[in-house]
Amino acid sequence: MQNLAIPASARTPAIIFDFAKHHLKLTGESYPEDVTEFYNPVFAALDAYLKTLGPGSCRFDFELIYLNSSSAKAVMMLMDKLDAAAAKGAAVDVYWFYDEEDDTMQELGEEFGEDLENAKFYLEKMPH
């Protein structure tokens, strides 16, 4: 499968989906002008990948410094897709990295983590 690599912009995070290594990553800030336009291709790529995963394993890293309220909805949808794949038998590890100086992002990570029923969730400080 073709990897997905979208470089970060001032208002959108970098997307680094290395499907061959089963390591997917979203890193930076997220407050796009148009959330749907930015995240739709990301959802599509993730859906296509998860369909091929079967009982395989994958890791998804969220390394977000800041996200606005409409991006939070998009992140929830990514989490739901990952959790659904895990429910079907995939071994999914979700990492949420937060800046220790901003507990709001830590709390948000906890919120997302609580809703994961099948994927494994790890809440970690961003390395400095």
Partner: peptide
């Protein structure tokens, strides 16, 4: 950092 991010988040 927390203040900066919070002011910015409220502004957005």
């Amino acid at each position: 950092t927390k203040t900066l991010r919070s002011v910015f988040a409220v502004f957005v």
